[in-house]
Amino acid sequence: MLQLKKLSKIYKTGDKALSAVDLTVPQGQVMALIGPSGAGKSTLIRCINRLVEPTSGSITLGDVEITSLKGNSLRQQRRRMGMIFQEYALVERLTVMENVLSGRLGYVSFVRSFLRKFPQKDIDEAFRLLDRVELLDMTDKRADELSGGQRQRVGIARALIQDPALLLVDEPTASLDPKTSRQIMRLICEMCEERKLAAIVNIHDVVLAKSFVQRIVGLEQGRIVFDGKPDDLTEKELTKIYGEEDWEDTIKKDESLA
């Protein structure tokens, strides 16, 4: 479904964020991307929807080559990739409904979006999604009136209304408490299951990642150093990704959950 070939990114400052990353994510798979801060996780998912321009390599989604796209065709491919952000990235002064409907911007004309006259089927879908994430009563609230967990659920609805084939999820739980974090991770995984979406989830919390996803990829200094099932992530592998530390708890906790 999604295929990265020799993807590299070197920033203008000379920082090598990604070096020749090869990665394939099949349809319906939720994959967690772990690694220390600065390993290139954020850069990787932003290269996929070209919020960051990759330096070299290729990205294909389905049978479309993403890296060479420009203008309209790039925007059409961005519609197929829903993105969920660390600090929710809702437009604070817009209503919950406007935030959800902004996921349809790639499909409607400027005049319609400017007048907030979205097609009825988009509005119905927005209501359905808001109901699914249990925020139907909040439709006309301003986004900055919501709690962290509620905002992230709006963020999820905004990504899903794009009707994407792929979800790019950047640290979805980094600003949430442990309980809300689990709820959000569960919601994302359920949605991917229901809609057969592939997803790349950047995440710092290794324990949380292991308990929800089918596959974990470890990134260190822009290179993939681990790719396997959550159970294969041993103390030795964690040391390879993050460096020397006592990893016993991280692995044990997971066993107690299982």
Binding site: N49, L51, R75, Q76, Q77, R78, R79, M81, M83, F85, A89, L90, V91, S102, G103, R104, L105, G106, Y107, S113, G155, R158, Q162, L168
Partner: peptide, 8 residues
């Protein structure tokens, strides 16, 4: 950036 990522 979030708005841009929707294909706007």
């Amino acid at each position: 950036e979030a708005v841009r990522s929707t294909g706007a």
